[in-house]
Design a protein around this nucleic acid. Sequence first.
DNA 1: CTTGAACCTCTAGTCACTGTAGGTCCTATC
DNA 2: GATAGGACCTACAGTGACTAGAGGTTCAAG
Lengths: 142, 142
Amino acid sequence: MLTIGTLAKRTGTKVQTIRYYETIGLMPEPERTRGGQRRYGQAELDRLSFVRHGRQLGFSLEAIRELLVLADNPSQSCVDADSIAQRQLKQVEDRIARLQVLQLELKRMISDCTHHSVADCRVLEVLRDHSECLTDHDQIGA
Amino acid sequence: MLTIGTLAKRTGTKVQTIRYYETIGLMPEPERTRGGQRRYGQAELDRLSFVRHGRQLGFSLEAIRELLVLADNPSQSCVDADSIAQRQLKQVEDRIARLQVLQLELKRMISDCTHHSVADCRVLEVLRDHSECLTDHDQIGA
DNA sequence: CTTGAACCTCTAGTCACTGTAGGTCCTATC
DNA sequence: GATAGGACCTACAGTGACTAGAGGTTCAAG
Ligand SMILES: [Zn+2]
Ligand SMILES: [Zn+2]
Ligand SMILES: [Zn+2]
Ligand SMILES: [Zn+2]
């Protein structure tokens, strides 16, 4: 039986995060000692590891919640799980593309600046006037 | 004199967002009609455009706040403004790098899956066991 | 039996908004 | 001058995924 602190250490999670997962129903309510402290077993360790690994791969808690349900039905087809991963991949690729636009724009304004006074700062000029930009970056900054 | 709705339209901002910027002190308190409605001039339009453009380029509101102060002192050196942009560029580049790691890992697990049952789903296997991953992705999922 | 590290609950804060409820104002038309 | 209705007002709650703190209790070692 593991204390919450030990479980936290084993999974690289903060104690508060584990309690937070419990309040949102992502982790089950564990056994308690007579004094009211949480005690965890192997099943909870596995589940939390799954959650944390999903987070490290950028999945939302909602996506992880769905994946956990799917993982509990071994005989089913895995198309649903795969499509969640596909969706996640697409999100990651979209974000990379949007960030690359920003990267280009930022690089350009920094390298164009002569680093003299604010009056002729290229960085501030570009910020004041989007027409100085090469790209249409509408809802990009995320 | 512009109403808040017109200002919102001109800058591609939501009305609530403008009011939010006012409460956090990023936009000044504007003139009001006798009835208490906000009325804006050119200076506010320029300022809000600057803020929105900064956001589109991924700057935080804190960074934008600093940039606005700098922009108001035209005779100063622009090193500070440039270093804020540098910092932003670095953040963007770090995020791209981290996302590319995720992209690779996700692509691999999706393409390795035969898309049969949950019992042998590659996606779920990888999620259960990080040693199936190629990379050490510690605090990457962001 | 005492110490003190680890645990407990509850609340509030982060970032940058977004949405809603319930009410008021402005302006155009009649 | 009256009325309609769209735009405005404030105030507050919610988002995602935690994180930090206050103030109190429990557990295990010595
Ligand atoms: Zn400069
Ligand atoms: Zn631009
Ligand atoms: Zn699969
Ligand atoms: Zn991994």
